[in-house]
Design a protein around this nucleic acid. Structure first.
Lengths: 164, 164
DNA sequence: CTTGACCTTCCAACGATGGGAACCCCTACA
DNA sequence: TGTAGGGGTTCCCATCGTTGGAAGGTCAAG
């Protein structure tokens, strides 16, 4: 089946299927005489696996590891669990950061009249933050730096963005 | 004071200060005879405002609006509050998505022995997800599409990435 | 006068995804 | 058999916020 059909059946867009092939997340698939990619049932199965992992928030690097474990019938479930737990930790940390932001903003918004008058505790806080609890300690390495560190998998500096 | 000092005092890196100037978030600042950017106390104040807004998770487009309101002494606090509330809604939605992911993964991880044996409910779920609750309904426009829609401010298609 | 720390501009990268151009291919229909 | 259309193909560009680095100019202290 061609890439459009594969996309429809797997829930992964044709663009993304080509991208996954390019970065080596999925192996190169066979071609028809005219150069069309040709997918089989097992390819769809793999694409659905990827789709589900993406929906659970795994990065492509993590999905790569999960795929290898999936294919390895002598895998240790501990290895899979370790990846999952690390990802959960990431999620929980990001949730906590965003929760802090939301809580701080909700507090400020409650204090803001939200009418015609210019006085606004939100702007006052932005101007010079009142540290009334947990949010935005400068001692922490800063949420933004952390977010970057989350994205920055150990992906090496190769020009084409390949995995490993 | 030069850009390095401004960066130290505001908590915004020199790189980012130049970037903010480039996209028009902050106005072009004066230069010394030798071409060095020269910052004053009010510039630092503005940079700290930006820094705080970033720490609260506002996008640059939103910060742009907030800065304009900050400068406008006849602003309506309702306009500020509206921006804040919209951002809170974004945060809460993203938190909810990530919470779903984390909850689903925690459930799977609990069911996984995590030992030497290859059997793993996490991989089994990725292979063919068991819909046992809320997570990953295909009826929802998909969390990834939503995340993209969050980033995609109404920023127009100009080559240099300027703000309006 | 040299050295090192600073500044300048410009280019590229990250991650995951979409848009679009230019071009080739396949099928159905007149 | 010609053609229209809806696929496929590759390649480049954009997003968003931030950092890294190269090549070169400047400044202050030794």
């Amino acid at each position: 089946m061609n890439i459009g059909e594969a996309a429809r059946r797997s829930g992964v867009s044709a663009k993304m299927i080509r991208y996954y092939e390019q970065i080596g997340l999925i192996p190169s698939v066979g071609r028809t005489e005219s150069g069309y990619r040709d997918y089989g049932a097992s390819d769809i199965h793999m694409l659905r696996f990827i789709r589900r992992a993406r929906d659970l928030g795994f990065s492509t690097a993590e999905i790569n590891e999960l795929l290898q474990l999936w294919r390895d019938r002598s895998r240790r479930s501990g290895d899979v669990k370790r990846i999952a737990l690390a990802h959960i930790t990431n999620l929980r940390q990001r949730i906590a950061e965003m929760e802090e932001m939301a809580a701080a903003l909700e507090h400020l918004a409650e204090c803001c009249a939200g009418d015609e008058r210019p006085d606004c505790p939100i702007l006052t806080d932005l101007e010079s933050p009142t540290e009334m609890g947990e949010e935005a300690r400068p001692s922490k390495p800063s949420p933004r730096a952390f977010r970057r560190s989350l994205q920055r998998g150990q992906a090496s500096r190769n020009t084409k963005g390949n995995l490993a």
